[in-house]
Design a protein around this nucleic acid. Structure first.
Lengths: 195, 195
DNA sequence: TACATTCTGGACTGATTGGTACAGAATGTG
DNA sequence: CACATTCTGTACCAATCAGTCCAGAATGTA
């Protein structure tokens, strides 16, 4: 079995994800993808099948990484600190470029809601997975007595998600990270989780 | 000066806006637009110049109408009731189809942020105009003593806007209006404006 | 070194994109 | 009725789109 693959698949996938993340599905053309991924057309179709298949793979990658951030913070942070840790990790502790790109799942939902329902459902599902992770951590906090058991953990998680979605849109507006920081503080105080 | 225009310009513009609103800029093709507007290619270019020019006109129309809703509610509602009135008017007191379309300005920002900066700036400006209208009404309420003068009116308006953006994204997810209603109540209680 | 196998670059396809050109239909004025 | 003017339908354009195809380059095995 001679001639091995001449490019790093996961590296190419990562480059594609960056591009889709920044420019969306429709506006990212195949030639642009090939250039960013550093591969040729035939290698592309041999390894990734279609543009849409590649997009799905990128979306899953992005969703998994985002979920990993939440789960990761859960290891070291108290559940009450989780929303702040998540906002800081994804909006402030990243390059200005990444912050401006917002969240790939949110971008996808807004771009493709009426255009490609299956992709919309996939992105929605991934967002719900993140919301569930928050809900689980709040339930845990209630059992530990860290969090008032009167509040419904699911509703609190839903509030965090609405705020989160709002902040993602704000980060795609002209706003710099300097403007974003007080917004995050303000949001946390709305949630009753201020410092 | 013989032969008058054979179509209703504002009606055609309205049809175009509906389509752009639902499907976004890139995914709406010229043939689709012509069909929805009920005019032919030459009439289109004679009256609207380019697809992009038409989109700008639609975006301005949408922004003006949204702002008119805020200003309109201001005539009859107390400033403290304004956020609820706005959410209800734009998310619940509309058809399910319209609710699912979200907000055209938000959709535009997310679709075109990196693709067409001038359009992004236009949509951002329109969103800021709405935020300003909220801020003005809160300042007024403080002078009337309806609202605690300790709170900063601008920051309260910014909070309303973040929540608003979050709800617009939620409305583009699979969520029905039945699921949206408790989210609105929950959001108002975060803002300290619950019933 | 020779072969089988696998990958790669570039030419090509048909469809679709936004935009233009122009002939002819329609209508108000004289 | 004739003309000038304006609008509209259609054919057309170059560019770009995603996707296919195949000749030839590259490499592990024998």
């Amino acid at each position: 079995m001679p001639r091995t693959l001449e490019f790093d698949r996961s590296q190419a996938l990562n480059a594609a994800m960056k591009l889709f993340w920044a420019r969306g599905y429709t506006a990212t053309s195949l030639p642009e993808l090939l250039l960013a991924m550093g591969i040729s057309r035939s290698s592309f179709y041999a390894s990734f099948h279609t543009k849409r298949d590649l997009f799905i793979e990128c979306l899953v990658l992005f969703g998994d990484r985002t979920l990993a951030i939440v789960e990761g913070e859960l290891q070291t942070q108290s559940p009450l600190e989780l929303p702040r840790a998540f906002f800081v990790a994804t909006l402030l502790d990243v390059s200005a470029r990444k912050a401006k790109q917002g969240c790939m799942m949110v971008n996808t939902v807004l771009e493709l809601a009426d255009i490609d329902p299956p992709l919309n459902r996939l992105a929605s599902k991934q967002l719900r997975a993140i919301e569930s992770a928050f809900a689980r951590s709040f339930t845990l906090a209630q059992k530990n007595g860290e969090l008032d058991a009167g509040l419904c953990a699911d509703e609190l998680a839903a509030r965090v998600m609405t705020i989160n979605l709002g902040l993602r849109v704000q980060s795609r507006l002209c706003k710099s990270q300097k403007e974003l920081e007080p917004m995050i503080e303000s949001s946390l105080s709305m949630l009753g989780l201020a410092a």
